[in-house]
């Protein structure tokens, strides 16, 4: 199996006053092509910052160090953003409706990134956008391309956001767990789509989640994080059924639920 992305000695620091405070300790992990790796932990565990550092999409006052390899090329974590964002790596944010430019039609949202970076001509991009929308289950792509974000339902917006992220056929896709504002079945549908597309395109996916049930259903491997460290990692089934680390055990215990919703759609433990 080829490695889509790998992190070595990757750590994250947050500006505090005049100094920097380390919030993610140096860590290493790989994401293989076509697989989904779940990154789980409670809020504040550092899972979001870790995956964002992998692609260089960090907010102001946050910096990463270490190195990141995407495909054949290795980058310093500080300079990774300019080289890979929008080309080899993209991100799907948690809330689909707010992550689309409210003044841009779907067409522009899909096309502007790849044409801005010179990866495709406008014509190629339009064509590719239609193909992606078709693949994501939109029957009437021409109509969707003309819509504005506020005219999309939550599920539609989520799929448009995914299409936008997949436009450059990235090697790595970082996916924030879809917002709980979406219906449970829509979330499952969306994640299934991502899984299928990732396998087809050979894209490695890092899925950030605090929902163990969700991870159990969709992820090939899983990393359990707490307080900026990876506590446990392995094939999903092994980790969920035979957790080694006490923290994972506690996390699993607290996720046991009572309702009759199918396992995959469990809202699971509250993290945030």
């Amino acid at each position: 199996m080829t490695v889509a992305a790998s992190a070595r000695e990757l750590s994250v620091e947050v500006r505090k006053g005049h100094g920097w405070q380390r919030v993610v300790e140096p860590l290493a992990f790989d994401v293989h092509a076509g697989e989904i790796v779940g990154v789980v932990g409670e809020s504040g565990a550092g899972k979001t910052l870790t995956t964002r550092a992998l692609v260089g999409l960090l907010p102001r006052g946050v910096r990463a160090s270490g190195s990141v390899t995407l495909g054949e090329r290795t980058f310093d974590a500080r300079a990774v953003a300019r080289e890979v964002l929008g080309r080899d790596a993209t991100v799907v944010l948690q809330n689909p409706t707010t992550s689309l430019d409210p003044l841009s039609r779907v067409h522009r949202t899909l096309v502007e990134g790849v044409t801005h970076l010179g990866l495709m001509t406008k014509r190629e991009a339009s064509h590719h956008a239609r193909a992606l929308l078709d693949r994501l289950g939109f029957p009437d792509q021409d109509r969707v391309l003309r819509l504005y974000p506020h005219e999309l339902s939550g599920g539609m917006a989520q799929r448009v956001a995914i299409a936008a992220a997949l436009m450059p056929s990235p090697k790595l896709l970082v996916v924030d767990e879809p917002t709980s504002a979406l219906d449970a079945h829509v979330r499952v549908e969306v994640l299934e789509l991502i899984g299928d597309l990732a396998r087809d395109l050979g894209t490695g996916v890092a899925l950030v989640s605090h929902d163990l049930a969700l991870v159990g259903r969709f992820c090939d491997r899983v990393l359990v994080m707490n307080a900026g460290r990876i506590l446990e990692r392995g094939v999903t089934q092994d980790v969920l059924e035979r957790p080694q680390h006490p923290y994972t055990q506690a996390l699993l215990a607290s996720a046991v639920t009572t309702d009759a919703v199918p396992r995959a759609a469990l809202p699971a433990m509250a993290g945030s």
Binding site: L57, N95, T98, P102, E112, A164
Partner: peptide
Amino acid sequence: GQDFVTSLRARGFS
């Protein structure tokens, strides 16, 4: 400060 700006950065805009 809005989300869509982050997602534009994610799509390669400076």
